[in-house]
Write a protein that binds this DNA or RNA. Structure first.
Lengths: 155, 155
DNA sequence: GATATTGTCTCGCTCAGCGAGATGATATCC
DNA sequence: GGATATCATCTCGCTGAGCGAGACAATATC
């Protein structure tokens, strides 16, 4: 399981990035009286906001791998902290639409701005082909992992 | 917050990779009667095994961001599942050395083998310069994030 | 209009992780 | 060489995130 080539080293590196990222996220969460899950939820909400997609409670829970009870509790927490507002969907009154508060957007920037800055600065030193290579790798890996290639789904 | 260039897109992509990775890890954990933290612990232990570094209870807890009580509980869990054995360090009898069981090594491969395979396959289609670019990016980003550049440490 | 389905919420519970502090082992100082 | 400070781990009691089961609305289906 030692040095088997540059590919393995890269996977290892990627794993360490995700792990380190998770730790920082947890730290950040704690610093703001939240839990890691809450930050992940915020990210989902901000992504949806960016895409213009409306997020319902159910969709959020699915995205985070929570059941409905846990999702309700999560939303309660975020609402209590003022990061979120619930709105009944008027088209389908079973649904609850979630709208992020401006303070949550700001919090998101505080959480990820520095990392974004680092990456952007880093990539400034890359030529177009190199940037493309990075994107191609991440994109391909995401696709592979997403369709069950990771975490022992038996692929 | 829309399309601001290829760099931002890459950060976004990386975030999605880490998020997806985390989800799969949680799934895998649940499928094996464990918790996400347990899998993360296993990874630490396997890394240490690979490097030949002995891991103590304290170091594991620090790596995972747990306090001593939580660390003890975690080790109890893993020991109960047979993934781990405690050994008193004879040089410093305060310490507890952790040794992973063979079944845990196998479990680690089951968890990450497919992802590793995907990445390796993907990288086979890259030339040396492209692979180097990917590594340079991940390495640089890891360094930036590790020294507090991420998650709003104020950097 | 009766029935099945969907989306969210409520209730009760389990257990991961925390804070505080006990305990045993090791450095430090006189 | 014993008193003292520090370190590594563990124990105890507790909080609260997340689960399973099921209630309850609103919407589809017949």
């Amino acid at each position: 399981m030692g040095e088997q080539g540059p590919e393995l080293e890269i996977v290892h590196l990627l794993r360490r990035v995700t792990s380190e990222f998770g730790l920082r996220q947890a730290e950040f969460a704690a610093r703001h009286g939240m839990h890691p899950t809450d930050v992940r939820a915020l990210v989902c909400l901000l992504d949806a906001e960016r895409d213009g997609t409306g997020v319902t409670a159910g969709r959020l829970g699915a995205e985070l791998g929570l059941n409905s009870a846990g999702t309700t509790a999560l939303i309660d927490r975020l609402e209590r902290l003022g990061h979120l507002t619930r709105t009944r969907d008027e088209r389908d009154r079973r649904r609850v639409l979630l709208r992020v508060a401006p303070q949550a957007v700001e919090l998101g920037w505080e959480a990820f701005g520095p990392a974004i800055g680092s990456a952007v600065a880093l990539l400034r030193g890359f030529d177009a082909g190199e940037v493309a290579a990075v994107r191609r790798f991440l994109d391909g890996f995401l696709a592979a992992v997403s369709q069950g290639g990771a975490a022992g789904t038996g692929a």
